[in-house]
Amino acid sequence: MPELVIVRHGQSQWNLENRFTGEVDVDLTDKGREEAHSAGKKLEGYHFDLAFTSELKRAQETLEIILNEIKEPNIPIHKNKALNERNYGDLQGLNKAETAIKFGEEQVHIWRRSYDIAPPNGESLKDTYNRVIPYYQKEIAPLLHSGKNIIIAAHGNSLRSLMMYLENITAENIVQVNIPTGVPRVYTIDKMNQTIISTKYL
């Protein structure tokens, strides 16, 4: 049975500083690199035929560290902006606590956690879903259907979108889902009908 593994990148510099990061291309912290090494150690014994990641360096470096840990650094890697983090628009770069004071905690909570309400000049989770899922259906699902094992290193909201699709999570329930940084989630997939047989965090 083919396996799909998704991993959220390790801690970034702006995660550490409690800033809205979105599509700003920030580096991993030392802790983020440690989380990526830890993810790789948890994936010891797994084999991947291809890897997918975003166009942002924090996800790319996470993937590189993982593939080096499992001694598969030379598998094909596909980078695409469809897997980028959600664009937080005018909030990008702002400290989350200061933003709550400026706009009100309730408004910021709505921007962060609602499914279809976007921050000013940014994307909602629904917008993110609408670019992630067509890319997954076109580029990744057929490879799983052919029996390939795939790893995706991406971001909290692009991966939450994928989880919605794979696990049939409703828009109401996805607001409660948080993906930990650097912890692989493994899907075992029925090759014939593409249904999920099992899923687990390592």
Score class of each variant (00 low, 15 high):
M1C: 09
P2Y: 06
L4S: 08
H9Y: 14
L16W: 05
L16M: 11
T21E: 13
T21P: 10
D25L: 05
R33E: 10
H37P: 00
G40P: 09
A51N: 01
K57I: 15
R58F: 08
A59F: 02
Q60M: 11
T62S: 13
L67M: 09
N68T: 07
E69D: 13
E69W: 10
K71L: 01
K71C: 02
P73Y: 07
I75T: 11
K81H: 15
N84L: 09
Q92S: 13
Q92I: 07
Q92V: 06
G93D: 10
E105V: 11
I110Y: 06
W111A: 00
S114I: 03
Y115H: 13
P120R: 04
S124Q: 09
K126E: 15
T128I: 06
V132M: 06
V132F: 13
I133K: 07
Y135G: 14
Q137S: 08
Q137P: 04
I140N: 04
L144A: 10
G147M: 06
N149I: 02
I150E: 02
I151R: 00
A153G: 12
H155C: 07
G156N: 12
N157C: 05
N157S: 07
M163N: 12
L166W: 06
L166E: 08
E167A: 12
T170P: 08
N173Q: 15
I174H: 07
I179P: 00
T181M: 09
G182Q: 01
V183E: 06
P184Y: 01
T188M: 03
D190M: 03
K191H: 14
T195N: 12
K200A: 13
